[in-house]
Computed example of a mutant assay.
Amino acid sequence: MRARPTARSGASWVRAEVAAGRTLGEALDAGTAGALGSGTLLRLEHDLRAELLGAGTLLAPLLAAPDVTDVLVNGPTGVWADRGDGLVRVPDPRRVLGDEGAVRGLATRLAAACGRRLDDAAPVVDGTLPDGTRLHAVIPPLAADGTTISLRTFRDTTLSLADLVALRAVPAHAAPVLRALVTARANVVLSGATGTGKTTTLAALLGLADPGERIVCLEDSVELRPAHPHVVHLQVRRPNVQMAGEITLADLVRAAMRMRPDRIVLGECRGAEIRDVLGALNTGHEGGWATVHANTAQDVPSRLVALAALAGMSESTLAAQAASGIDAVVHLRRTDGRRHLAQVGVLHRIGDRLECVEALTVAADGRVSAGPGVDRLASRVGDAAVAAALGAGARVAVA
């Protein structure tokens, strides 16, 4: 007869039962109910679910915290979390995470939860957990100091433009410009560095689109969740271990054009799909949005040129198509931990080169000033929206 476990050995006993094939509930009911109090039993079940099915007893609470955006694991000794004010080290992670073998096991389990594999044949994985959390993991020998795990949280709550104003991410007097870009069905590039709030801002702005419009979002993994009644999500498919079966963003752009879209939205443009996106924006598809990584609005053209080179496009071809197809660049910045609107620019072609001319500059305190491209922006979104951003009675033209 199997000995009934004690409270002290209950956790390890349940682990053994689960490993032997019982469900977690069966294991708990079979051996621990009589030895453990109800409160201890609930805590044990919660911890075991985290260890066996989730991100573990250290990472799961961090990912569940509403203010945490990123959790990073650098082997068994380094765990960092970003709560909006930059990365902060989590104390004494080894006691909870265990050794390198345990961290690798955690990464492998998370990869499996994404439907991916992580082993010596596939030492790098990128995927999305069932709750929407994005996973990136690398194992040794590629990760020289131990298995690294990068997790970016996903929140069910979608912020609105009014929420961004309340959070001081967008000055109240600049909000009409962003709203007008959506209403006027302008084609816009949303730029910024990692962690500046590009996805959050884009989702908020897409929520302003006419409810009768069909929005097709193309992403590596689904992150955009705009508050809109008609959104279709397409996501890429990675190649299998035989390097077959890949569906790229460029493939999805071509597919989206046949889906009767009112707006084509590219979650992140970072490769040869720039050719297909610009092709769509230059063939009557209005109201498109795409995000790119860039340090400033003025750096967006060089970023686009680099992406175009991956598609075999010359700089002159890129300049011609981007200047014609993209109406504005909206740039976000992170200052002292606060994500905020920093610039609105317009693209201008000078010979064979593409330049971004600043139309509006937003200071850290929310003051908005006009740049040389303000007239062109006003011609696209209307004088009233630009005048509101600059202040009551402001002249749109720059002296």
Rank of each mutant, 00 (worst) to 15 (best):
A3L: 14
A11I: 11
W13M: 00
W13C: 00
R22M: 15
L28Q: 03
G31A: 04
L36D: 00
G39F: 04
L41G: 07
H46T: 14
H46Y: 11
D47P: 06
L52V: 00
P61N: 04
A64W: 02
G75M: 10
G75A: 10
P76W: 07
V79P: 00
R83Y: 14
D85M: 10
G86M: 03
L87M: 10
R89A: 15
V90K: 13
R95L: 13
E100W: 02
G101A: 12
G101H: 09
V103N: 07
R104N: 09
L110H: 03
A112T: 14
C114M: 05
G127C: 09
T128L: 14
T133W: 02
H136E: 12
A137D: 07
A137K: 02
D145H: 13
D145Q: 07
R152D: 11
T158D: 02
L159M: 11
L159Y: 13
S160G: 12
S160Y: 09
A162C: 00
D163R: 07
V165P: 09
R168V: 03
R168D: 15
A172E: 15
V177D: 01
L181R: 05
A184T: 14
L190D: 13
T200S: 11
G207M: 00
D210R: 13
P211Q: 03
P211S: 04
V231C: 07
H233W: 14
R238F: 04
A244F: 06
T248Y: 11
D251S: 11
D251H: 06
R254T: 05
R254E: 07
R258A: 06
M259H: 09
R263A: 05
R263I: 11
C269Q: 00
R270M: 05
I274V: 15
G279V: 08
G284I: 01
V292Q: 03
H293A: 10
A297N: 10
D299K: 03
R303N: 08
L304V: 06
A308T: 03
M313A: 08
T317L: 14
A320F: 15
S324H: 10
D327L: 01
V330D: 01
H340D: 00
L341S: 02
Q343W: 08
R349P: 08
L354K: 11
C356E: 13
E358K: 03
V362F: 03
A364R: 08
D365L: 05
G366H: 10
A370Q: 07
A370M: 03
A389P: 01
R395E: 13
A397Y: 04
